[in-house]
Design a binder for these strands. Structure first.
Lengths: 151, 151
DNA sequence: GCCATCCGGATGCAGTTGCATCCACCATGC
DNA sequence: GCATGGTGGATGCAACTGCATCCGGATGGC
C-alpha cells in the first residue's frame, strides 16, 4: 500500500502541477488584463446559466464546482454584490436559498467567452494537436474517476 | 488569432484544472493529516538539497519553483523560522543572500517522502498504467514548452 | 567620483482562503 | 409538542496571496 510509485507516475504528477500552474496563470493573466474577473466567477455563472430559471441551491453549485462551502458562500457574496446573481429564499426549505443568474451575469459570460477561448487556444491548443488534446483529456479523466477501492 | 479552440482542447483544459485540483487536494490532505507542512515546503527544500552546501540564491529558487518573488521571500521566512533553512549573506553580492538547507530540513524531506510517494501512488498511480503515466507526462510536457512564437 | 538606473529582496496593505464554529431550520423519535 | 440530531449556509479569525512600493547595493555613463 505504501509502495513507491514508478518514475513515470511521479513525472506525470510533477508535470500535472506545473502545466496547470503555467497555463492557468497565463490564461488568468490574459483575462485580468482584459478587465475580467477571476475564472471562478465564470465557472459559477456557467453552471447557473446551465440551470436556467430554476436556479441552483448553493450546495449544488458547491458540488458542481469543486469548491469548499465557506468559499462558495463568499464567492456568491461577491457575485451578488456585482449584480451577476440573485439570491432568493426557497419556499421548500427555510434554511436554503436559490441562486439564479441575472441578465448582467449572462452578459458577463458572453463577454468573457471569446477572450477565454482565445486564451485557452493560445496557451493550450497551440501546444497540442487535436488528437493529442483528446488523448490528454482521456488520460486526465482517469484521474477524476472515483478513488480506487481498497481491495 | 482569436479562433475558438477545438472541443478536445477545451475538454483537456477543463480536465487539467479539475484533475490537478482533485489529486493535489487529496495528496495535501493526506500529508496534513500525517502532520506535515504544505508541499511548497517540500519543493523548496528539495531544490535546496539538490544545490548542496553551495546553497541557492533566493532568485534562483524562485526560478526553480514557479513562485512569485514576494511569495518566496515569505516562504523562506517560514522555513527559516522553522529551522529548515539558513539565510547567510553573500560575499559576492551585498544585497543578496544564500539559502542552505539544514540537517533539520533534510530530516523533514526524508520523513515526508514516503508519505508523499504513497499519496502520489494512491491518488495518481492507481488510476494509470505505467505506460499511460508516461504518455501523460509527455503530453503535459508539451504544455510546459515555451509559448508559441507569434508568426 | 557622481549620478541615474537596475536588480535582489522585504514589507504594508487589501483581498482571499482555510478552519472552526455558529445559527437557523428541517427531520426524527417519543 | 418537544428534545435530539442532522443539514444548509454564514462568519470571526488567523494564515496566506497579490500588488505596489520601498530599501539598499550593484552597475554603467560621464
Amino acid at each position: 500500500m505504501t509502495a513507491i510509485p514508478p518514475d513515470a507516475v511521479v513525472a506525470a504528477w510533477v508535470r500535472l502541477v506545473r502545466a496547470r500552474h503555467r497555463v492557468l496563470g497565463a490564461v488568468e493573466a490574459e483575462l485580468k488584463r482584459a478587465g475580467f474577473p477571476p475564472l471562478a466567477w465564470y465557472d459559477a455563472l456557467l453552471e447557473l446559466r446551465r440551470a436556467g430559471e430554476a436556479g441552483l441551491r448553493p450546495y449544488q453549485l458547491e458540488g458542481a464546482m469543486l469548491l469548499a462551502q465557506y468559499n462558495l458562500s463568499r464567492l456568491v457574496d461577491r457575485l451578488a454584490a456585482a449584480g451577476h446573481v440573485v439570491r432568493a429564499p426557497t419556499p421548500a426549505d427555510g434554511r436554503g436559498q436559490v441562486l439564479t443568474i441575472t441578465e448582467r451575469g449572462c452578459a458577463l459570460l458572453a463577454a468573457m467567452w471569446p477572450a477565454y477561448a482565445a486564451a485557452i487556444g493560445r496557451h493550450m491548443g497551440a501546444h497540442l494537436t487535436e488528437a493529442e488534446a483528446a488523448t490528454l483529456a482521456a488520460l486526465l479523466d482517469r484521474l477524476l474517476a472515483p478513488p480506487a477501492e481498497p481491495g
